[in-house]
């Protein structure tokens, strides 16, 4: 298998691993409820009698575990840098180099990059919310649909901002792995790449992201109508493949950027 194939697999497994215990607990609980009534096939019977009964009977269990959810999600997010680093390491290692070391070494920098990205997302969303409040107030004399559609551009702006931040984060991650830069340096490199070649950076990211989410959304919907498992798991794998494709591109962009040692002193830390 090519390095790109391995990277896709690493990313995919890294993605499923934290979901697995949750899914297994859920599946076991459902098995305990309906294991003697033909298994969980009953859940999607028309009218939802079994599905609603499952939710009702498991609500106390869910409620008791709910306190863990934010912590588990945080852990999920932070540990996500490991498969990211390993996959980028596979893609960014030189031919004569062992494939894992570079990725491992980049993990601390990737955590910094992730932190900056999360902060950026929070700020971007907060700004959009403030703008929505102001705009909503100024549209208050219009009818409800006008207000709704008047706010729609802000949703697009918010999505665009989140996209740019995601692309920047990936570029910085690529810099951290390829050039073994530390977090702030990697972020600066990413900004520089985005500044110099914005369309070359955002274009390949955007179409792949749009395609990936289109596939995932389509699988979620169409999977309910038939052929579910194959479609859904295939879409997850394809989304990882697309992401890895973009990372290859990001590594190339980093290679094309000026070396940090050649940067003018003002941009040094």
């Amino acid at each position: 298998m090519s390095r790109r194939g391995w990277a896709t697999l690493v990313l995919h497994l890294g993605n499923l691993l934290p979901a697995a215990p949750v899914a297994l607990v859920g599946a076991s609980l459902v098995g305990a409820l309906w294991g003697e009534q033909g298994g969980d096939g009953v859940l999607w019977k028309p009218g939802g009698a079994y599905l609603l009964e499952t939710l009702r009977l498991l609500a106390p269990t869910g409620g008791a575990l709910a306190w863990m959810a934010p912590w588990y999600l945080l852990l999920w997010v932070v540990t996500g840098v490991v498969p990211q680093g390993l996959a980028l390491g596979l893609l960014g290692a030189r031919a004569d180099e062992a494939p894992w070391g570079r990725g491992w070494r980049a993990v601390p920098a990737l955590v910094v990059v992730l932190g900056a990205s999360l902060l950026g997302r929070v700020v971007a969303l907060a700004l959009c919310l403030l703008a929505a409040r102001a705009l909503g107030a100024s549209l208050s004399r219009f009818s409800d649909p006008v207000r709704f559609w008047g706010l729609a551009p802000l949703v697009l702006i918010a999505l665009g901002l989140l996209g740019v931040i995601q692309a920047l984060q990936d570029l910085a991650a690529a810099a951290a792995v390829r050039r073994e830069e530390r977090g702030p340096g990697a972020l600066l490199t990413a900004l520089e790449v985005l500044h110099r070649r914005p369309w070359a950076a955002l274009g390949p990211w955007a179409w792949r992201a749009a395609l990936a989410w289109g596939l995932l959304g389509g699988a979620a919907l169409v999977g309910e109508l038939g052929g579910g498992a194959l479609l859904r798991q295939g879409a997850l794998l394809a989304a990882c493949w697309l992401r890895v494709g973009w990372w290859c591109r990001a590594l190339g962009l980093i290679d094309g950027a000026p070396d940090p040692r050649e940067r003018p002193p003002t941009s040094e830390r």
Partner: peptide, 19 residues
């Protein structure tokens, strides 16, 4: 049936999506 297999698969999908 001890483990709801369809539930497991869907849990992995939605978990993967969340991831």
């Amino acid at each position: 049936t001890r483990v709801g297999r369809a539930t497991l698969e869907r849990g992995l999908f939605w978990g993967g999506l969340l991831g």
